[in-house]
Simulated assay, not measured.
Amino acid sequence: MGTQHLSQPELYIGLMSGTSLDGIDAVLVDFAPPAPTLLGKFFFPFDDALRQAVLALHLPAQNELHQTQLIANQLATLYAQAVNALLALTCHTPQQILAIGCHGQTIRHCPEHGYTLQIGNAALLAELTSITVVSDFRSRDIAAGGQGAPLVPAFHDKLLRAPGVHRVIVNIGGISNLTNLAPGVTTSGFDCGPGNLLMDAWCMQHLKRSYDANGAWAATGRVLPELLQLMLAEPFFALPPPKSSGRDLFNMQWLQSKLTGDESPEDVQATLLELTCRTIAEAIQTQCAGAQAVYLCGGGAHNLTLLNRLATLLSSSIVQTTNELGVDSDFLEAIAFAWLAQQNLQGLPANLPLVTGARHSCILGAVYPA
């Protein structure tokens, strides 16, 4: 990210709460030339009750429409608290912010049926913050025949492309996705498969912890070849890009359907980590051949067991986090959604048809004025 600007500031806030359901990443970014500058960052954790309530929305239930709206309102309130904390931290006022780019919380992602659903009541967020909100970034791309995801490759292209260097950016959140930044080639990207979501869910079930810190628990187990092959046989992995996925496919029911019940929990965790690493590595080897450097971001970038395993599988590439490029690996996605809000207000398209499969470029997002 750049240094402080001398020109007129262009201040945007980005909010990201992803599939991992750990909480809200909030950033304040100045997009004035020559380069985006991260002015502040704030993390607002979700409590277990909210996490479980959102997880429950992924499955059909009685009165789910009412529950969805109530949780959307709750999320908007939490988003507003995160925004206010960020403004206080950076000594800014709502009047100085051009817009908030709010991803919202995905509870359904079904591009094959022509829709995706991210909740968070953007109108209420605009009311609570007195700042214009841009949200619902994925629907316009899906309306144009695309997957609606991943959306961050367009921002990776703007921020992280380097002349003459073949880079791949891998975001390991709940789902893992990659961006291929090959010199002289149009940027491409797609979802690889599960990132942290299965490991986190298995860890919660057996250790009552929301994630496996540094992959320490996984490191005590051994990979189960039969289980790994069963999981790798999932048709999603063999699909060519463009492709995207989420909890609609990769969830605990999916995992349980592969288990005999005789496996030790730590061996399952080791195998889930191997699944994440193998699907990322194979995606890079088949779709990003010749990659010189692979940069990780998202929560999975903290998992040293995972990082070391990826480095082994991708031995011909440098494997590091985006911190090495001067971009905070924890907040890169939130910065991307601030940028998506800026693109919307400037009337500029922000999807990459090669990535999502859309028929054409689109201006993304719905605007709720302050």
Rank of each mutant, 00 (worst) to 15 (best):
Ser7Val: 11
Met231Trp: 07
Gln343Asn: 11
Arg140Val: 15
Leu296His: 02
Ala350Pro: 03
Ala336Ser: 15
Leu364Val: 09
Gly104Pro: 02
Glu64Gly: 01
Gly347Val: 00
Ile335Arg: 04
Phe137Cys: 10
Gln95Glu: 15
Ala366Ser: 14
Leu259Phe: 11
Gly193Glu: 00
Ala350Met: 04
Ala123Ile: 02
Ala49Ile: 13
Asp248Trp: 03
Phe337Lys: 02
Val355Ser: 10
Val168Lys: 04
Ile363Trp: 08
Asn63Ile: 00
Gln269Ala: 15
Ala32Trp: 06
Arg309Asn: 13
Gln95Tyr: 03
Ala49Lys: 14
Leu345Lys: 06
Ile131Phe: 11
Phe237His: 14
Arg278Ile: 05
Gly148Cys: 08
Thr129Ala: 09
Pro183Lys: 10
Glu64Pro: 03
Glu263Thr: 03
Leu259Tyr: 11
Gln105Ala: 02
Asn196Lys: 03
Tyr115Trp: 07
Gly347Phe: 04
Gly193Ala: 00
Asn251Cys: 15
Ala233Leu: 07
Ile169Asn: 05
Leu332Arg: 07
Leu340Ile: 05
Phe42Met: 08
Gly221Lys: 10
Thr19Ile: 10
Ala72Ser: 15
Ile97Pro: 00
Thr271Ile: 04
Val83Ala: 01
Ser135Gln: 03
Arg222Ala: 08
Gly290Ser: 06
Asp200Ser: 01
Ala182Ile: 01
Asp191Ala: 01
Arg140Ala: 15
Thr220Lys: 14
Pro94Tyr: 01
Val134Gln: 07
Ile363Glu: 05
Gly40Tyr: 07
Trp202Tyr: 07
Ala201Tyr: 05
Glu282Asp: 14
Asp30Tyr: 05
Ile280Lys: 00
Leu345Asp: 12
Gly195Ala: 09
Gln69Gly: 13
Ala122Lys: 10
Ser176Lys: 06
Asp48Val: 14
Tyr12Pro: 00
Asp47Tyr: 02
Ile280Glu: 03
Met16Gln: 08
Gly145Leu: 10
Leu6Trp: 11
Ile318Thr: 13
Leu70Phe: 12
Pro183Cys: 15
Ala82Met: 00
Pro94Asp: 00
Cys277Leu: 01
Phe43Arg: 00
Ala61Trp: 04
Glu266Asn: 13
Gln256Pro: 00
Leu87Phe: 07
Asn121Glu: 10
Met199Tyr: 01
Ala293Lys: 08
Ile142Ala: 08
Phe137Ser: 08
Phe43Pro: 06
Val83Gly: 02
Asn180Ser: 15
Asp22Asn: 13
Leu11Arg: 02
Leu38Tyr: 09
Met16Pro: 14
Ser135Ile: 06
Gly189Gln: 06
Phe31Tyr: 12
Tyr295Val: 07
Leu117His: 01
Leu151Thr: 09
Ala56Pro: 13
Leu15Asn: 06
Pro225Phe: 08
Thr37Ser: 13
